[in-house]
């Protein structure tokens, strides 16, 4: 396993006392976490632990009752350009009239701006992003005609097209085939090796050690945060899941 890059002065994402409620139910009850630069961090926790909510609230996509989120030392609102957000695949309507290439080109909006139109350079760059995920042959395919795994790869290609420093992914491996999972992991690791920071909501406890450097154990509040080798232990995971699962994890 790659030795995790030590924390620098300014973490990729620093969350302090973030609080979110849906109605009267607190979902995030004062979450504080510091997610390291140049590392792959998994956010782990049971259903309803607030994993997706944490990403959305940190990005300002949903209102929070309090707390702050800093990306590279700046408020996230100002630090958005170097951040790529990959929502859950189920968050969008895949019947939308667009081709895979059109979705990837959306990742270039910041570069082209309001009046910029898509030219040859943008199309070539978008095709390159699709190729890195093995999707070049599907560029002109209607997105509704793609499999779940292929749709997820299109989402990843769009994030790649953003040329971001920090990637926030909401369950990138949910409902995808093994080939897609391998392609995504390879891509994320190569991004990490270029010094970029990856944060992913993750469900499969059996792959945490193989895929990630660091882990944030979350259940409405931070249970533990640190390198996988020392933090992803049976006792802490059991506390996170309320003692439901205690198998296949080193004690």
């Amino acid at each position: 396993m790659v030795e995790p890059i030590p924390l620098t002065a300014e973490p990729a994402l620093a969350i302090r006392d973030l609080r979110v409620s849906y109605g009267a139910n607190p979902v995030l009850d004062g979450v504080t976490a510091s997610l390291a630069r140049g590392a792959m961090t998994a956010i782990i926790g049971p259903n309803g632990a607030g994993k997706s909510t944490l990403l959305k609230a940190a990005l300002g996509l949903i209102p929070s009752l309090g707390g702050t989120a800093l990306a590279f030392g700046k408020p996230v609102g100002q630090a958005l350009p170097p951040i790529a957000y990959v929502p859950q695949r189920a968050a969008v309507d895949w019947d939308f009239p667009a081709r895979a290439l059109d979705v990837v080109l959306m990742g270039m909006y910041r570069r082209t701006g309001l009046l910029g139109r898509i030219g040859k350079a943008e199309t070539t760059a978008a095709m390159e992003c699709l190729s890195r995920l093995g999707m070049a042959d599907f560029a002109t395919r209607q997105i509704g005609a793609l499999s779940g795994g292929q749709q997820q790869r299109v989402f990843l290609a769009r994030a790649l097209a953003q040329g971001a420093e920090l990637y926030l992914l909401d369950e990138p491996f949910a409902g995808v085939d093994a080939a897609t999972e391998a392609a995504i992991v390879t891509l994320l690791k190569s991004l990490r090796d270029e010094g970029r920071s990856i944060v992913a909501v993750h469900h499969d406890l059996s792959t945490v050690s193989a895929y990630f450097d660091r882990v944030l154990l979350l259940n409405r509040r931070t249970i533990a945060e640190g390198p996988v080798a020392t933090t992803f232990r049976q006792e802490a995971v059991a506390r996170t899941y309320g003692n439901q699962i205690a198998t296949a994890i080193p004690a």
């Binding site: 959305k56 957000y85 929502p87 969008v92 667009a98 909006y109 082209t112 309001l114």
Partner: peptide, 21 residues
């Protein structure tokens, strides 16, 4: 005028917000 941002935010609102739309 707003064709591209309108298309992007119609398809994926969360992403559109993070893309500065």
């Amino acid at each position: 005028l707003v064709w591209r941002p309108l298309v992007i935010s119609t398809f994926d609102e969360g992403f559109a917000r993070t893309a500065g739309i």
